[in-house]
Design a protein around this nucleic acid. Sequence first.
DNA 1: GTCTATAGTGGGATAGAC
DNA 2: GTCTATCCCACTATAGAC
Lengths: 224, 224
Amino acid sequence: MSQQEVSTRSRRTSHPKSAITRQRILDAAARAFSLKGYAATTINDIAMTAEMQGGSIYYHFESKDDILQEVLDVGITRVFSAVRLAVGSLPASSAFSEKLEAAVTAHLTMLLQQSDYTSANIRVFEQAPAAVKRQNRKLRAAYGEYWGRLLSEGQRAGAIRRDVDLMVLRLLLLGAMNWAATWYRPGDLAVSELAQNVCDIVLNGAGLDSNHLERSSKGRRARS
Amino acid sequence: MSQQEVSTRSRRTSHPKSAITRQRILDAAARAFSLKGYAATTINDIAMTAEMQGGSIYYHFESKDDILQEVLDVGITRVFSAVRLAVGSLPASSAFSEKLEAAVTAHLTMLLQQSDYTSANIRVFEQAPAAVKRQNRKLRAAYGEYWGRLLSEGQRAGAIRRDVDLMVLRLLLLGAMNWAATWYRPGDLAVSELAQNVCDIVLNGAGLDSNHLERSSKGRRARS
DNA sequence: GTCTATAGTGGGATAGAC
DNA sequence: GTCTATCCCACTATAGAC
């Protein structure tokens, strides 16, 4: 199913000329939010990068919150599309491990090197006003559900142990990835390598095989 | 070794009476920062919770940044102490998996339910002014190195595969845990259960044992 | 040590010329 | 559609009484 771009759902996109300027503003905002956080970014910061005066912004957007809303929404839309595309491009018969690696690589690529919108989303979502968060949360939920289905398929296909809580697995995986926005600096390590490492650890574990034997013993020996 | 509390290293702790008020202010600030973020928290918010007027804060602290600095620093000091204590309380001969679970449980406990300081740290560190971050980063580095040593010991003891990149493992683990500050709500799932799940996945992997066979084959079969 | 009052400022948003 | 000028408010921080 062709997912329609969220794109410009604003009040005033009639004129094609202003659409370009709008984009410049959003690009500038996404970058600035991602680098400095929401509150620390001023309208004038955005305007300067977009090569205009502060007041001019308000021809295109109603408020700073409005800009934030759109940046955050595009941020999720972009990762979501990239991940769906990466996974969808694989042969349907592919092993789960390959699908997972494709998804993880796509997510990390958008977050860490391709999309200021996505990294802005991950970095400033928590700082956003309640109303803005509320709307963005819908997109986040849909994206989260996509991951849920991916993992669930993997489990049904026998690639994930039946006793693993998929909710926890998903949050652990997305958490590990998203936190990379905090520490990753290009040059440390290629994104694709990071993705491989993450998938390896999550699927195979960092421990030796012998550890597996202990795992189903729920009742730990009481500390005497 | 008894690690001395960082406690009050401020200019004006001579009088025992004001030390209590200072604490009230810090507690209020930690909670507010953790809930609303740094910029969105006003001096008056803090003052109200601490049951005083905004202006009075400045008898105890030089600036808002000053309060933030102390909150952030205490935040790391607290998790660090808790984790060190939890691991240190185990018999030295304990299995690595037990040490890991103790450490993970302690970290998550402080972050998710015991310390507003720790959760404030994780949530607002990125929003802090450069100077504040710079100082706090020293504590974070020491804490990170502690985890590095813990994992490194585990690897030397044979509990972690030799081909696992410990740097990545550490960041994945701390990332997964810290991100929980974003989604965890008490009642969803007990912290200790979450900790067990995380350790299980990270050590044993979410996949089936058969996956292990594939893992050292770097050259994936080319998709035909 | 805490209060009230206020100085000072930064920055979001609007008005109106061009 | 962009500019300049400015309004206006929120908030940090200070001053001085008590």
